[in-house]
């Protein structure tokens, strides 16, 4: 039984329709994003599902999964706070910003907060160099940019997300 197909039949049909009928392999990356949407990482049992939909081997899909940094193979925080510390941003203080933020959150770069909500990572250029410090928030199947940040501003974003998670937990 193909769990992925059963869960997202319409979306998968839409994804496949974007490529020529004999080129289903092109759907691999969109399908990996889909598989990652719910839990923030690609559960290993979905690889067989994607293999079945696209007609390529599980080994090939695993190599694609491992190649790209936006795909996660292991569970991490619900949200990834990915801070750009590449050269142009570093020239505008992003390394200090990352360090202070990590201190405030009680984590080291690459670690996840105790509540399991936030993994903080340093990443390469995100095409926002003129608005450093900045980070992208990856989670819940979305990616959003937060630019011209200060540690205070970012902590406010984090608090709002914590509040949202609490509400969701309370509402079951």
């Amino acid at each position: 039984m193909n769990k992925l197909l059963k869960k997202y039949p319409n979306e998968i049909e839409k994804i496949l329709s974007r490529y020529p009928a004999d080129q289903t392999r092109s759907a691999v990356m969109p399908l990996l994003f889909l598989a990652q949407r719910e839990e923030g990482f690609v559960p290993s049992d979905t690889l067989a599902d994607i293999a079945e939909i696209t007609g390529i081997s599980e080994t090939d899909i695993t190599s694609v999964l491992g190649f790209y940094t936006l795909f996660h193979e292991q569970p991490g925080g619900r949200y990834y706070i990915q801070i750009c510390t590449d050269l142009p941003c570093a020239l505008r203080g992003s390394e200090e910003y990352l360090e202070t933020l990590c201190q405030k959150l009680g984590v080291k770069e690459g670690e996840t907060t105790a509540d399991g909500l936030f993994t903080v990572e340093a990443v390469k250029c995100l095409a926002a160099c003129h608005r450093a410090p900045m980070f992208q928030l990856q989670g819940d199947g979305e990616i959003k940019y937060y630019e011209d940040q200060s540690v205070e501003k970012t902590l406010a974003v984090i608090e709002a997300l914590r509040e949202k998670a609490k509400q969701e937990a309370a509402n079951g």
Binding site: R18, M29, P30, L32, F33, F67, Y68, T69
Partner: peptide, 8 residues
């Protein structure tokens, strides 16, 4: 059609 990469 748009097609998204995944960080590379």
């Amino acid at each position: 059609r748009t097609h998204l990469g995944a960080g590379a």
